[in-house]
């Protein structure tokens, strides 16, 4: 019994990990970002494809929720018009703190192709709700979305451990396609 190695809970067959409760919660939170199933336009199809079998965003613990009250994360996928923007604000208001917003695609970032001549499109959802991660692209590849989620996880961890929200938003850039035709080596032309 005098063996100093033999402390309670640390024997090789007991598998107990000692940690602070906060860290444990942060770990759990980080790996279960439930997102609001909410798609407005073209990016919504890419969001669906990201949830599909090839990209399988569920493996990151991201499960779509139909109601904002159960969601941690809102992915604004697609063009936001003035008529819609007030609804988006309403949805965001219903989410519980801490809540996160990812702006997916050029339209939600800045109006995209509709920014110049359209009378009804809002140029950027950040006029209504604060955005944590911007993902450019029209539409972005699912890899870009996953990259944005990874960047968001860093923020979630930081917020949980220090209680601080990072003020400056993150912008995803330079995505290496991991699947699909872009990933394959170009075939030799004959």
């Amino acid at each position: 019994m005098a063996d100093p190695q033999c402390r309670p809970g640390n024997a090789s067959h007991e598998q107990i990990h000692l940690t602070a409760v906060d860290e444990f919660l942060a770990w759990g939170k980080e790996h279960s970002l439930f997102y609001l199933l909410f798609a407005t336009a073209c990016c919504g199809i890419e969001l669906m494809q990201a949830g599909g079998p090839r990209y399988d965003i569920d493996r990151l613990g991201m499960i779509p929720r139909a109601t904002p009250r159960q969601a941690d994360l809102m992915i604004v996928a697609g063009t936001i018009t003035h008529k819609m923007a007030e609804r988006v604000k309403l949805l965001w208001d219903q989410m519980t703190e801490p809540r996160w917003v990812v702006s997916m695609g050029s339209c939600a970032n800045s109006g995209g192709p509709f920014s110049k001549w359209s009378y009804s499109v809002l140029n950027g959802i950040d006029k209504y709700v604060p955005v944590d991660v911007y993902i450019p692209g029209c539409p972005p590849r699912p890899e870009a979305l996953i990259d944005g989620v990874m960047a968001l996880r860093e923020r979630v961890r930081l917020y949980r451990t220090t209680g601080q929200r990072t003020k400056t938003p993150h912008v995803v850039a330079g995505i290496e396609p991991a699947f699909g035709a872009h990933h394959e080596k170009p075939e030799q032309k004959t």
């Binding site: 407005t40 336009a41 073209c42 199809i45 697609g78 063009t79 018009t81 008529k83 819609m84 609804r87 192709p113 509709f114 110049k116 001549w117 359209s118 009378y119 009804s120 499109v121």
Partner: peptide
């Protein structure tokens, strides 16, 4: 809720420039 005024944009851009907007009419 998704009225993006594509028909108005059609009157503002040149003929070939409208082709990318047709993508967004039905993506």
């Amino acid at each position: 809720y998704l009225h993006r005024s594509i028909e108005k944009i059609g009157e503002c851009v040149e003929w070939p420039m409208f082709v990318p907007y047709t993508d967004r009419v039905d993506y």
